[in-house]
Simulated scan of single mutants.
Amino acid sequence: MLERVFVKKYAVLQNIAPTSSVGEPFEGAKEWYVLDTHNLSLLLEVINALSLVLESKKKVKK
């Protein structure tokens, strides 16, 4: 069974996941990156990059 995670296409991920496939997490959605959960190094890179982006967005909204 293929286990995968859909990740929104943030600009910061363009260099991290350039070869990742894309797909729609649900019908009518925009394309998101589709990451294989068995590639732990890629998952860690994505999580680290997104944590910085999402933390900065959280601070701006306050």
Rank of each mutant, 00 (worst) to 15 (best):
M1C: 03
L2S: 11
L2D: 07
R4M: 07
R4T: 06
V5G: 04
V5S: 15
F6M: 01
F6V: 03
F6P: 07
V7P: 12
V7R: 04
K8Y: 06
K8Q: 12
K8W: 13
K8E: 15
K9I: 11
K9L: 11
K9C: 14
K9M: 15
K9D: 13
K9P: 14
Y10R: 11
A11Y: 08
A11L: 07
A11G: 05
V12F: 05
V12S: 01
V12K: 02
V12L: 08
L13T: 05
Q14I: 02
Q14S: 02
Q14L: 11
N15S: 04
N15T: 01
N15C: 06
N15W: 03
I16G: 00
I16Q: 08
A17M: 02
P18D: 08
T19V: 13
T19W: 09
T19N: 14
T19Q: 06
S20E: 14
S20A: 13
S20K: 01
S21F: 02
S21D: 10
S21Y: 00
S21V: 00
V22A: 01
V22K: 12
V22T: 09
G23H: 06
E24K: 11
E24L: 15
P25W: 04
P25E: 03
F26S: 05
G28Q: 14
G28Y: 00
G28V: 00
A29Y: 12
A29T: 01
A29S: 15
E31T: 04
E31A: 13
W32A: 07
W32D: 13
W32M: 13
W32Y: 15
Y33H: 10
Y33A: 09
V34D: 15
V34W: 02
L35V: 02
L35M: 03
D36Y: 11
D36C: 06
T37R: 10
T37H: 06
T37F: 13
T37P: 04
H38D: 12
H38T: 09
N39P: 05
L40N: 14
S41W: 11
S41P: 15
L42Y: 12
L42V: 02
L42I: 04
L42T: 12
L43M: 15
L44H: 14
L44S: 10
L44F: 13
E45K: 02
V46E: 06
I47N: 14
I47D: 06
I47Y: 07
N48C: 10
N48T: 08
N48L: 14
L50K: 02
L50T: 03
L50E: 01
S51N: 10
S51C: 10
S51W: 03
L52C: 01
L52M: 12
V53Y: 01
E55G: 00
E55R: 09
S56G: 09
S56N: 09
K57H: 00
K57Y: 00
K57A: 00
K57E: 00
K58D: 01
K58Q: 03
K58A: 02
K59D: 12
K59R: 06
V60R: 03
K61R: 07
K62S: 09
